[in-house]
C-alpha cells in the first residue's frame, strides 16, 4: 500500500471518531469495528496469507483479555502493562500450540483450532479462582488520554486506532517483505517452499503465533473497553466472525479484512436487537457473499475496476 492510502486509513477512524463525539453509541460501534479489524487482519495473515486455516482466534482473544485484565485488576498496574502481557501470553500459547497442531492442514486444522477455542471456553468457565468462572471479571476501566477538550471515549478510540494502525502497518510490511513472501509460499505450495530451503514448520509457527499475539492484544482492548469479560465473550462465534470478515472482504487481502470488519460489524448491529433472526441472516449473508463474490469483495471489485490489459 502507498503512503497516501495508509494515511487515509489512519485518518478515517480519527476523523470519524472526532465527528461522532457525543454519540456514544456510534463511537462504540467504531471501537468494535477497530477491535474486529485487528482480529480480521490477524486471520488474514495466518489463513489468507500463510494458508493455515484457523478458528482459534476467539481462544487467543479470550486468553489476551484475561491476561490483561488480571494484570490491571489483581496487580493494579496501568493498562499498558496489561496490554503487553496480553501480547506475550497469547503469543506464547500460540507458539506452544502451533508446534504440534500445525502438522495438520486445511479443514483438519480448522476443526482442531475450533476444539481449542472450546477448551479455552471451558477453562474460563471452570477455573473460577483465576477467571471468576461464569460471573467473569469486571471493574476494569478503559485507558484514556489526558487531553483537554476531547471526550474520554474518543481518546480511547485514539489509543485503539494507534494499535489498529500499527497492526495494519506491520501486516502490510510483512506481506511485502522477503520474510512474508516466504510465508506466502506455504500457502501456494508447501513442497515448493521446502525445495527452496524455507523452514516450513518455523514459518508456520511464526505466522500462527503472530496472529495469536495480535488477537490477544485485541482482547486486552476489548476487556477494558466493555469493563466485563466472561466465558460467553469468547465463544466460537468470535472466531467465525474473524474468518468471515477476512474471507468475505477478500482472501489474503488486508484491505479486504478492514472492509469485511466494517461491513459485518455494521450488519450485525441492527441484527443484535433481533436475536431470533440474527443467525439466519448472518449465515445467509456469508453464504451469499461467498457464492456471488468468490474471491471476496475487494479482489472482485478490483478486477472489475482494473481489467487486465490485452495480451
Amino acid at each position: 500500500m502507498g503512503k497516501l492510502e495508509l494515511g487515509i486509513y489512519l485518518a478515517l477512524p480519527v476523523v470519524a471518531g472526532f465527528l461522532l463525539q457525543g454519540n456514544d453509541y456510534a463511537l462504540t460501534i467504531l471501537a468494535f469495528m477497530l477491535i474486529y479489524g485487528v482480529l480480521a487482519m490477524a486471520t488474514t495473515i495466518c489463513t489468507g496469507h500463510a494458508g493455515q486455516v484457523t478458528l482459534a482466534q476467539a481462544g487467543f482473544f479470550g486468553i489476551g483479555a484475561y491476561a490483561a485484565v488480571l494484570v490491571t485488576l489483581d496487580l493494579d498496574l496501568p493498562f499498558v502493562f496489561g496490554f503487553i502481557a496480553s501480547l506475550v501470553v497469547s503469543g506464547a500459547v500460540g507458539y506452544a500450540l502451533g508446534v504440534p497442531i500445525l502438522r495438520v492442514k486445511g479443514h483438519f486444522l480448522g476443526l482442531i483450532t475450533l476444539a481449542f477455542t472450546q477448551v479455552v471456553y471451558e477453562v474460563a468457565l471452570h477455573w473460577e479462582s483465576l477467571t471468576g468462572g461464569f460471573n467473569g471479571l469486571f471493574g476494569m476501566t478503559k485507558p484514556v488520554l489526558p487531553i483537554p477538550g476531547i471526550e474520554p471515549l474518543y481518546s480511547f478510540i485514539l489509543i485503539l486506532t494507534a494499535f489498529w494502525f500499527a497492526v495494519l502497518l506491520a501486516a502490510d510490511n510483512l506481506v511485502h517483505s522477503r520474510y512474508g513472501r516466504a510465508m506466502h509460499m506455504l500457502k501456494v505450495t508447501e513442497q515448493g517452499a521446502q525445495a527452496c530451503g524455507i523452514n516450513v514448520s518455523r514459518y508456520k509457527s511464526d505466522a500462527f503465533a503472530l496472529s495469536a499475539a495480535l488477537c490477544g492484544g485485541a482482547g486486552a482492548f476489548y476487556g477494558h473497553f466493555i469493563g466485563y469479560i466472561g466465558p460467553d465473550s469468547f465463544t466460537i462465534d468470535v472466531s467465525i466472525a474473524a474468518i468471515a470478515m477476512a474471507i468475505v472482504g477478500g482472501i489474503g487481502d488486508l484491505r479486504g479484512a478492514i472492509l469485511g470488519s466494517v461491513l459485518l460489524t455494521f450488519l450485525n448491529e441492527p441484527l443484535r436487537n433481533h436475536p431470533l433472526y440474527q443467525p439466519v441472516m448472518y449465515g445467509a449473508v456469508i453464504l451469499l457473499a461467498l457464492i456471488v463474490l468468490p474471491e471476496g469483495i475487494v479482489p472482485s471489485v478490483l478486477r472489475i475496476a482494473r481489467p487486465r490489459p490485452p495480451a
Partner: peptide, 8 residues
C-alpha cells in the same frame, strides 16, 4: 481453497 469451503 480450503478456508472458503470451511467457511461455507
Amino acid at each position: 481453497e480450503p478456508s472458503v469451503q470451511l467457511l461455507i
